[in-house]
Amino acid sequence: MASQGTKRSYEQMETDGERQNATEIRASVGKMIGGIGRFYIQMCTELKLSDYEGRLIQNSLTIERMVLSAFDERRNKYLEEHPSAGKDPKKTGGPIYRRVNGKWMRELILYDKEEIRRIWRQANNGDDATAGLTHMMIWHSNLNDATYQRTRALVRTGMDPRMCSLMQGSTLPRRSGAAGAAVKGVGTMVMELVRMIKRGINDRNFWRGENGRKTRIAYERMCNILKGKFQTAAQKAMMDQVRESRNPGNAEFEDLTFLARSALILRGSVAHKSCLPACVYGPAVASGYDFEREGYSLVGIDPFRLLQNSQVYSLIRPNENPAHKSQLVWMACHSAAFEDLRVLSFIKGTKVLPRGKLSTRGVQIASNENMETMESSTLELRSRYWAIRTRSGGNTNQQRASAGQISIQPTFSVQRNLPFDRTTIMAAFNGNTEGRTSDMRTEIIRMMESARPEDVSFQGRGVFELSDEKAASPIVPSFDMSNEGSYFFGDNAEEYDN
């Protein structure tokens, strides 16, 4: 783990906690998980779902989305002020799938948001429990990260689609708070800032007046979040320049895209947490497990152990491969979309394939898809080993990566060399080191050039047997250095459309 220093740990961010010791953190995270579980059980009762239907990941996603929508204050306010045809701002819903006479049927349900809020609060001892809501947002974000390569979004903001390893959390809503900021990748933060800068260039009043003052505060806050992700002084200094700019424009845009590229080699610290679907927490609570009393951590053995003992089902389209669908969801559960496939294969105990080789589309089923041909199958979400999630980018030494994705962002704290394609990355730096950030740029390029592919990161860190909950005997895996390590390699994943 990167030293926490003055930073709060993510469990504290996750639970809005002030400084807590490890036991208190485990208890408050457990409380959050228990609340999600209780809410899910109650919703299944309301909807009269069978046990099997309640364990269907598509039903879980609909129920999670309903509660997130019920608590989305800004959108609710907007919907009330701008009524649109056929949208009731006070209601929320989605597809629920039921097994009827041996076939899967889709039923569109509609609930009062007020009623959903009441059920959620009741499951969370009367609190709004925003930490639990954020947790579900991060699960949705991790699922998107594993399912889609955001080529269009990258290109629109002047970045290269091969930089997708920097895009963790790119679909997280803005209201996801400190826990959300911690899991956002460098590219995601750059993209958010670039969008602001572009608006400022096109709209003279963007930075002016009372609204402009708020915009400015948001801009500086985002700059500080991004600065905190960088691990070298030169990158941090460049972020200070971007933040202090009187009138952010093209120079800042250039600096930010430069920094994003540099992060492929001088990786930023991005938190990883295993956020599971509500249909995993519900049955665990129903079986009598007391998360608050037992304590829970999002970055240790607990999620692995929970998945070892969970039964989750998914709808499967006619030509999809259930094992591939399982891999997709497994990666999402562990926030591992940008991790090295060699490491993932070792931990999972079966070969993890790149996205383009998977015969599976996303987990969600569109409303126009034919239910007649839908089957369902068990998702295999178990693992051979477990490993500690990392909050750091690993040290800054790398190795060759593949054509589709030119770097990785480690999820697990496991000893290995970190793949990246130096030639491709360095070719993108057209040696432009003039301007006010020239000395920093020169320094950053120097550090990137001296990074050695064969150097090892996370020295001495290994994986653990599932029986080793105290992480007492690390097993340090050895990897084939020459092997392909990137998930979005030469990829044809669908595009994420909101």
Rank of each mutant, 00 (worst) to 15 (best):
D491S: 08
I365P: 03
S413A: 13
K184F: 03
R152K: 14
Q12M: 11
A472I: 05
C164N: 15
M163Y: 11
K470H: 03
Y385V: 04
I109C: 13
A472L: 06
V456Q: 08
D145H: 11
S28H: 04
E114V: 13
P474N: 05
G54N: 13
I347M: 10
P277R: 10
V183L: 15
L47P: 06
R75M: 10
P283Y: 08
T433D: 04
S407A: 15
N309K: 15
N76L: 11
E494Q: 08
A428Y: 05
A337Q: 06
T373E: 04
F71C: 09
R55W: 10
M32W: 06
L298Y: 06
E495R: 10
Q42T: 14
D128Q: 10
I406Q: 12
M239I: 14
T23F: 14
G435C: 07
Y289D: 03
T442P: 01
Q308T: 13
F429K: 00
A387R: 00
L166D: 02
K236M: 12
R8L: 08
Q168R: 06
N309I: 09
S262D: 07
R204F: 05
N368Y: 08
S60A: 03
K103A: 15
S326F: 03
S413I: 05
I119D: 04
E495Y: 08
L259Y: 06
R461D: 02
Y52E: 01
D455Q: 06
I25D: 01
N76H: 14
Q12F: 10
G180Y: 05
P474L: 12
S457M: 06
F488D: 06
C275Y: 07
V100M: 07
R400D: 03
Y313D: 04
R267V: 04
R416E: 02
V280S: 08
G460S: 10
R162W: 10
F206R: 02
D88M: 06
M191S: 08
L344Y: 14
L341M: 13
G34S: 11
R19G: 09
E369P: 01
E443A: 05
Q311A: 03
S84N: 15
G394L: 11
E252M: 05
K348M: 04
T378M: 02
K214M: 15
H272V: 03
F304M: 04
D290V: 08
L68N: 05
